[in-house]
Design a protein around this nucleic acid. Structure first.
Lengths: 123, 123
DNA sequence: AAAGTAAATTTACTATAGTAATATAATTTG
DNA sequence: CAAATTATATTACTATAGTAAATTTACTTT
C-alpha cells in the first residue's frame, strides 16, 4: 500500500502532535480525554507503536519525553485517502465526491462554497 | 461505531456478492484472482468471518455453499464513510469534498459533472 | 530520610484481518 | 473400483490496534 497507516486513536494522537508540534505524553492524554476517556498507559503504548513505525520521535527534557511528528499530515492524509477511495470507490475520487453530493451529505450552505472552489479550479 | 466494518479483501469479496447476488466460493476466488492473487482457502476463511459477523449467509446446493449478502452496499458504504470522515475530516463530508477539489484530486472533465450535480441539488 | 508523585517500562490480553497449508469427505471419471 | 477432483472443515500463524494494570525509577516534598 501507500505510506503509513494509522488507526483511529493513533490518528487522534497525531492530530495533537501536528497541532502542537512538541508535547509530552501527559499533555496528549489530557487532550484526548477532553474528547473521550483513555488511560495514560494506553496513550504511551500507542506512542511507542507510532515511534516504531517511524511516525514520530522524541527528545528528552529532564526525564520526560517530548514527542514530535516525523511525518506530515498531508502525506498521511493522502495515503489514507488513497486506501479508502481504492477500497470503496474503485479508485475514483470523483466517484466519492459525486456520491457525497447525490446522497445529501453536503448541507446546502456548503454547496455554494464548493461551487466556488470548482470555479477557482476551472478558471 | 456505526455498523459493519470490512477489511480491504473482505470488501472485494462483498463487491462480488453484491454484483452477482448468489455465488459459490470458487467463483469468488476466481473473480478476485482476476485482480490479484489470493488462495482459495483464504477466501473461504474470510467468507466464514463475513458470515460470523452477519454480512452474508449461504444456502447449500448439492454439496456447495451458495453465498449471498445480508447487508446492503448502501449501509456498509455509509458506515465506512462515516468512520473515515470522522477520523480524518473531523466529521465533515464538506471538508472532504473541499479537500479533494482544492488538492486536484478531481480531473477537470469531472468538475463539470460535479457542478451539474450541485445544480440539481440546489434547484 | 520517608513518603508521595510522576515519569517510563514491562507485561499481558482481546479482537480483527489476512494468510494459507492440511485434512476430510464426497463425487466424478478413467 | 481406484484415482483424481473438488468441496468444506480444521488448524495455525503473523501483524496490527487498542486496552490497561503493574512495576520500576527518579525526583519532590514533608
Amino acid at each position: 500500500m501507500s505510506g503509513i497507516r494509522l488507526g483511529r486513536v493513533q490518528w487522534r494522537i497525531m492530530q495533537v502532535l501536528w497541532e502542537k508540534g512538541r508535547v509530552n505524553a501527559r499533555e496528549i492524554t489530557d487532550a484526548l480525554n477532553r474528547i473521550e476517556p483513555i488511560a495514560h498507559s494506553t496513550v504511551q503504548t500507542l506512542l511507542r507503536k507510532l515511534e516504531n513505525k517511524g511516525a514520530i520521535d522524541h527528545d528528552i527534557d529532564e526525564r520526560t519525553f517530548i514527542f514530535y511528528p516525523l511525518v506530515e499530515v498531508e502525506n498521511v492524509t493522502r495515503s489514507a485517502l488513497k486506501d479508502f477511495v481504492d477500497k470503496i470507490f474503485e479508485g475514483s475520487p470523483a466517484g466519492l465526491v459525486s456520491y457525497l453530493i447525490k446522497n445529501e451529505y453536503i448541507p446546502p450552505e456548503e454547496l455554494e462554497n464548493i461551487r466556488k472552489l470548482i470555479n477557482k479550479r476551472e478558471k
